[in-house]
């Protein structure tokens, strides 16, 4: 078991003809079962062409009908990325993973509005993607550092996810799935949504949750954990030393009005029974200590 994706997931790449889309589609195909997972590409101007044997369709709908793909990954440039999400939602895909960074907030507000009542799950934007080790990776994370195992990882920061995974590997702990939810303020799945999925996943025994300053998603998730989570969760928040009000690269990571600080998030998480560490180098060891 795993969450969101497994070896049988069929994926299309939106933006497959761009440099980034091509490079990462190739990397994803080379990972585990990738060859049979990545089955389609979309570019409205290049239908009928192909990339390394992957057929390109003009629209998501066509690609879905032609190949049976139910998930998509988006590398489309920021001005067009929200529309790419909309198209995938409209076509009724199960899962859309948007890697693109720098989508205007208003575009994402509109897209989230259009998603109401639709079945599509969105991961990102501005995220590294999702990986189920030894089965499939959809996104830009380095595949080789992951291995299969019982730990779920959910994170707002890409690089910190890799750091957590690296520490787990050092302790011999693999992952069920790792989900990068992205650093943008208006996005798809939040910590709480991914924790729910891990809670219901038979293979996942414990979860590492990596947050960031800004917003209140970590606090919301922590309160849910207190009431509902049957598995241990350990947490870390990046940005304890970030100067207030300075933008540190993620639009979501802005401290405002004393809310959303790392200290406040850590305090709420601890109150709710999440074991926290203030030293990110300890994430792996802390998790190991809570395993039954």
């Amino acid at each position: 078991m795993s969450i969101l994706i497994d070896r049988n997931t069929k994926v299309m790449t939106q933006g497959i003809t761009g440099k980034t889309g091509q490079f990462h589609t190739r990397m994803c195909r080379e990972y585990a079962n990738g060859k049979s997972c990545f089955v389609a590409g979309v570019n409205p101007k290049k239908p009928g062409e192909s990339y390394e044997g992957i057929p390109i369709s003009a629209t998501v709908k066509e690609a879905k009908e032609r190949t049976g793909a139910t998930a998509s990954v988006i590398y489309v440039p920021p001005p067009f990325a929200a529309a790419a999400i909309d198209e995938a939602v409209e076509a009724g895909l199960d899962l859309v993973i948007c890697i693109t960074e720098g989508i205007p907030v208003r575009d994402m507000i509109r897209t989230r509005y259009r998603m109401q009542g639709k079945k599509t799950l969105l991961v990102g934007p501005n995220c590294p993607g999702v990986i189920t080790p030894d089965e499939i990776k959809i996104g830009i994370m380095p595949g080789h550092i992951h291995k299969k195992g019982p730990i779920g990882v959910v994170s707002r920061s890409g690089t910190l996810t890799y750091e957590a995974v690296g520490q787990l590997a050092e302790l011999g702990l693999g992952q069920s799935s790792c989900v990068g939810i992205g650093g943008d303020p208006v996005n798809g799945l939040k910590h709480i949504d991914v924790l729910r999925l891990f809670n219901d996943d038979a293979e996942t025994e414990a979860v590492i949750m990596v947050g960031e300053i800004g917003g209140s998603d970590e606090e919301t998730a922590a309160r849910w954990v207190k009431r509902n989570m049957r598995k241990p969760v350990v947490g870390f928040i990046a940005g304890v030393t970030a100067p207030p009000g300075k933008r540190m690269g993620h639009a979501g990571a802005i401290i405002s009005g004393g809310r959303g600080t790392a200290q406040e998030k850590l305090a709420v998480m601890e109150e709710c029974g999440i074991r926290i560490t203030r030293n990110p180098a300890e994430m792996g060891r802390l998790l190991k200590s809570v395993l039954k």
Binding site: S155, R156, S157, T159, G183, A238, T241, A242, K246, A262
Partner: peptide, 29 residues
């Protein structure tokens, strides 16, 4: 460091061990 998260975290670890970072610099993307 590369990536905003890793950079902030590197700063956090520096403070954790009693040091003080001289800069934030992201060379991600």
């Amino acid at each position: 460091a590369n990536g905003a998260g890793l950079t902030m975290t590197t700063m956090d670890v520096i403070e954790h061990y009693g040091g003080a970072p001289a800069n934030f610099l992201e060379i991600g993307g």
